[in-house]
């Protein structure tokens, strides 16, 4: 398997075998990500971190990943401090950045921006989120978390809950889980339910699906993946409060779940998971956040050729 020089734009660019290989490398990266072991694997390499949109976890974990492997980081987190403010195009910004680095990690508000950047750049481009488009490294770290917490991806029943219509991460995740033949439950209010084409595609791939509007019965679920319901999707604030309230995960929700059921969330969360859940054995979201580092280390090492 050769990843050297490859762009990482969408999870769809990976086969199941390639995904498993990335997760295997990520597992080996864990002690380095924790700071328990030192590494100089990417010594001499420079990563450009181009964030045209706000980010906490994606940007910090990519930078941490690069530095933990002995590499260097340049870039910006606020485009206002660059020539973009003077009207420079993304294409020119990419051509400039690539002459200063070995790999580009970017987040941009427009869908398709990472794919376009990859056309202009000779160096590999890793997509850290393109508008409502793709976020492949989030998807990989979600899969890594399920594998690490449950021991395997296949054989789990995964419930995806919240804003399934607009949520950037859940469409890619549903596709990836279908690739692994995972049984899924889509739980969302009717107006925020999973788009038809995603449902159809998952079914065509042979995934067993259930579509629900409430979280009454999640007693047979192994993984509960919660996403944020965004206020701006609702024209009526009353309606938002009603919907958001009925999808909130708290101690009561967890009364009748499996002992080893895990709750995941790509974060940031607002009100959808009560802080009282944080201390329960079910809360996996902070470990999930950490997992972003080893997974991104694996990708950086692979595309830069530090690991074949």
């Amino acid at each position: 398997m050769n990843f050297r020089g490859r762009d990482v734009i969408s999870i769809r660019d990976f086969t199941k075998e390639e995904i498993l290989y990335v997760l295997e490398i990520a597992e080996k990266m864990v002690p380095i990500a924790k700071g328990e072991k030192k590494s100089n694997l990417l010594n001499g390499y420079i990563m450009a971190s181009l964030f045209f949109e706000p980010s906490t976890r994606t940007r910090l974990s990519f930078e941490s990943a690069m530095k933990r492997l002995g590499g260097l980081v340049i870039g910006f987190a606020q485009p206002g401090t660059t020539s973009i403010k003077k009207g420079e195009s993304l294409a020119d910004t990419i051509r400039t950045a690539e002459s200063y680095c070995d790999v580009i990690v970017m987040r941009h508000p427009h869908e398709g921006s990472a794919r376009m950047a990859a056309e202009f750049a000779e160096v590999p481009v890793i997509n850290g989120g393109d508008g409502a488009g793709h976020h492949p490294t989030q998807c990989l770290l979600d899969l890594f978390t399920i594998k690490k917490e449950k021991g395997h991806i296949e054989g789990n029943k995964v419930a995806l809950l919240g804003d399934l219509k607009y949520g950037r991460t859940v469409h890619s995740l549903a596709y990836a889980l279908a690739l692994f033949g995972v049984e899924m439950v889509f739980i969302a209010p009717p107006e925020l339910q999973m788009p038809k084409e995603v449902i159809e595609e998952c079914r065509e791939m042979g995934a067993k699906l259930e579509i629900k509007n409430d979280i009454e019965d999640i007693s047979d679920v192994d993984v509960l993946y919660v996403t944020r319901i965004q206020k701006e999707r609702f024209p009526d604030p009353e309606e938002y409060n009603k919907v958001a309230g009925s999808y909130r995960i708290d101690a009561k929700t967890l009364e009748k779940v499996k002992d080893d059921m895990i709750v995941m969330h790509p974060l940031p969360r607002v009100d959808e998971i009560s802080p009282e859940v944080d201390k329960t054995r079910h809360a996996a979201y902070f470990r999930q956040t950490f997992n972003g580092v080893p997974v991104r280390m694996a990708l950086l090492a692979l595309v830069l050729g530090g690991i074949e």
Binding site: S89, L90, A91, H108, H110, E111, G112, R115, G131, A132
Partner: peptide
């Protein structure tokens, strides 16, 4: 048709 697509901005593509 997606107004937020990068191809609908002033990029040279």
């Amino acid at each position: 048709p997606n107004p937020n697509c990068i191809s609908n901005t002033r990029e040279p593509i």
